[in-house]
Design a protein around this nucleic acid. Structure first.
Lengths: 309, 309
DNA sequence: TGGGCACATAGGCTGTCCCTATGCCTCTGC
DNA sequence: GCAGAGGCATAGGGACAGCCTATGTGCCCA
């Protein structure tokens, strides 16, 4: 399912938002470092692609039409996610000496870090960060060896020599398409869930291990072979949405789909699928500078969630 | 704040996700209707922009590296929002005869319709839709005149001649930046909120009217002049995040910001800021065909939310 | 050891995008 | 009433990115 080409170039939409904010095409052009005619033409071709007028041009500037407001409203989340993506990419680049080295588990790196990094950038804009992702053991190694200033892990037991603080919570959830039989009751027993073939990550992944560990803790030694093993979260979601079968994923991965009811959550009785996500650093070496800032930002999220529940 | 060019072209990221799903560059290329060398080069330049290897190339296909999984994970939400945007744009095009004509208030059109339209497309892929956005009076007119098959409004009183059903709920919320004094208490009185200059939409907008109406109902006749009037939701959020002052917006507009604590919600005592969002159609003319499908999809969301609270 | 599969490289072309220069319109101030 | 400034549109030309076909290279397997 390739992306429609109409929306594949974000620059024009970004320009549209700038026009909305600044009130004129010329000022928007300047804000984007391009000439006014270029911006004018881009917006014109954008209108051509959309098929309706987005701007009301006057001799004193330009305003959005109603359609323009809608398009701008739809484009804003795309650009916001794109900023997250950019923040993540920036942190992956290892080509410059960084002031802040982060090691994180995949769940934290994928779902929480981009927003933290953007927040960090507003606090200390000049901090360059480098992110290394791996499982909890790998993260602990990096931090203990001094190759990372701050680590984020998702295991319940903190490795020796590290001090930790809970910054967020993860939870595995079972989800099905709205038309699936389980979607009606919204609850299954742990035994039944274990006996049902699920769509899941490949064996050895953190998610898969956590699922099997939770079943083991509940006294269920054996579980059914997966219905389908896929290596990307997106592919698993697509399979579940397509009705292939129930899937098990991190709640962070399906939050948006639950909100729009693209997927439905199914509670699993008698099964504890929660995991604390912790920041870790060498014992006795309290984080300072940017690492301290990031820790503060990350900690904000947990106090927030605690308040709201 | 222009978008970094690194992330402005979504095609390459879409291609990366296809590689993750299909397991080879060649198959991903075919899925996107391009030649294998083109895809190969695109991915290579993408890796260059990111700065690290994203793919592990073997003679039997290609797999994502750890960094590749991260980038794919960050890119997926961008593409999902882009699909929403595309669905919205498609519904704005009036160039083909449509089977389903929708009239909707700005709030519904901006925050709820894209997801509904995507869901509708999976139910009946051949349904073409045309969307007209306007205020509640305008929507009612369209539906009554037979120029729209289904309408969505946000007023409490249903215009004569129309049957309605509640499909979702809107709520105005006051938000501030995390550093703002109000962020600590998370609660202000209605009198104090009314007396404080806020960042808001321009006079005459639905949001502004609803805010003033709620104050009036609470017996507060007069409110302070706005601190700043802006014409786009995004601009208002940017102002609030920047610490200019408290802003009042639809909860749908700030949901993501509340989740990441970019903004903090402040409850306003003794003020009812809820509004039901209703679907409307001509009395006695029960929606059929695609209109009925859309109504079903829209109604799903309200039962869902009711369950979760 | 050859064939098939998958990715990489080479060369050439097309199209897009951007820039500078200029024109037209409107509003404003004298 | 007129001149100037601000804002958008148009014209023309040049640079670069992206795509395609054809071909090369490495690996696996029969």
């Amino acid at each position: 399912m390739p992306l429609p080409s109409r929306v594949s170039d974000l620059t024009s939409f970004d320009l549209l938002l700038s026009v909305a904010e600044l009130g004129s095409i010329g000022r928007a052009a300047k804000a984007h470092g391009m000439s006014q005619p270029s911006a004018s033409e881009r917006l014109r071709t954008l209108e051509g692609r959309v098929g309706v007028a987005l701007l009301e041009r006057t001799s004193r500037g330009a305003r959005l039409t109603t359609a323009g407001q809608l398009v701008a409203g739809w484009a804003a989340p795309v650009l916001a996610r794109a900023l997250d993506l950019d923040a993540g990419i920036t942190s992956l680049r290892a080509d410059r000496h960084s002031q802040l080295r982060i090691a994180a588990s995949l769940t934290v790196a994928e779902y929480l870090l981009p927003a933290w990094l953007i927040a960090l950038r507003t606090v200390s804009p000049d901090t360059a960060t480098v992110l290394t992702a791996g499982n909890s053991v790998h993260v602990a190694e990096q931090v203990l060896a001094g190759r990372a200033d701050l680590g984020f892990i998702e295991s319940t037991d903190v490795p020796a020599g590290l001090t930790s603080r809970v910054v967020a919570e993860d939870e595995l959830v079972v989800v099905v398409a709205p038309g699936h039989p389980w979607a009606r009751r919204r609850r299954v027993t742990a035994v039944k869930a274990a006996a049902t073939p699920l769509v899941s990550r490949e064996s050895g992944s953190g998610t898969r291990q956590a699922w099997e560990h939770a079943l083991g803790t509940a006294g269920i030694g054996e579980s059914a072979e997966p219905l389908l093993e896929m290596s990307s979260t997106t592919a698993i979601k697509a399979a579940a949405i397509g009705g292939i079968g129930p899937a098990v994923l991190s709640i962070h991965a399906v939050r948006a789909d639950l909100a729009t009811r693209t997927l439905v959550r199914v509670e699993v009785s008698d099964l504890d699928l929660h995991r604390a996500l912790r920041a870790v650093w060498p014992a006795g070496r309290t984080p300072r500078g940017p690492a301290s800032d990031l820790l503060t930002i990350a900690t904000r999220s947990v106090t927030h969630r605690a308040d709201r529940r």
